[in-house]
Design a protein around this nucleic acid. Structure first.
Lengths: 145, 145
DNA sequence: GTACGTGCAAAGGTTTTGCATTACA
DNA sequence: TGTAATGCAAAACCTTTGCACGTAC
């Protein structure tokens, strides 16, 4: 009777809270983000629970683990094919539009068994790009005076 | 008088050993791989030296830091545009041929400031794919008997 | 000579694990 | 009821940092 039943694992209240937090979430949260969010409704939840739940969801293909952020893993409930941009300034991860399915030579397709392809971009997001250019202007101004 | 002089940082014997190990290296070594390799000629080298040297090379654009292996950073002295495959079985990282420069919409190019794009593949390398299919055959055989 | 690199050890941050207890199915 | 999840704490890893000493330039 629960919308998450088809995942095929035990639906504990903690897991429901994690699933509710993840559903439709486009923030690409880290394990700690998820832990903190669920902590509000489950003051006793532990990282062990968070990590084992994430591992189970990953294994069932309901969650993507991103290594786009070099400092920690980020999670994405949107498992459809899309790319990501990591903003090196604000550390946020953004979904990127456009189709980037890489084309591989036949020889590679024959020899390797590829289960996933992923395109990553690093740079500045719109907000940080704007801030940075404004700061440069200020700096330039100071230098001029 | 040294071929590495143009990097523009102090050329200590430790750094020379690291540079020699990295040059032409297609293994995508981790920091520990590099540490262990240099340890043979420099029994006193420390991780601090390895990491600061890697950071300097990265900053000077002479080295790529890969997040293709989810468990640790891997380093690639080949900074030309190419893709990587991570073998989930043997944990090796392979260079992948073919051009996969992603095309982004104009709106994205205007709003974001992208400094790097990278295509990653996950799956099985040729050797592990072969091993795995042989193992399945054996398993199937056992189950039949 | 001086700024920068080295090496040691300790600390920091993320992720995993062992185990007794609890609870879903 | 039995299997699997929870929570706590400790440990395991990878990476960074502080500081005294040493060295390339």
């Amino acid at each position: 009777m629960n919308k998450y039943r088809d995942i095929g694992f035990k639906l504990t209240p903690q897991r429901l809270a994690i699933l509710d937090y993840l559903e439709g979430n486009q923030q690409h949260p880290s394990a700690e983000d998820i832990y903190r969010a669920v902590l509000k409704t489950f003051p006793t939840i532990s990282f062990a629970t968070v990590y084992t739940t994430l591992a189970a969801l990953k294994q069932k293909g309901k969650l993507l683990e991103l290594s786009t952020d070099p400092s920690k893993k980020r999670y994405d409930p949107d498992t459809s094919c899309h790319s990501h941009l990591f903003c090196v300034s604000c550390k946020r991860v953004f979904d990127m539009p456009g189709e980037h399915t890489p084309v591989l030579p036949e020889s590679v397709k024959r020899d390797f068994s590829i289960t996933r392809s992923h395109v990553e971009f690093h740079g500045l997001c719109a907000g940080c790009k704007k801030n940075k250019s404004e700061t440069s202007k200020e700096v330039a101004h100071v230098h001029r005076s």
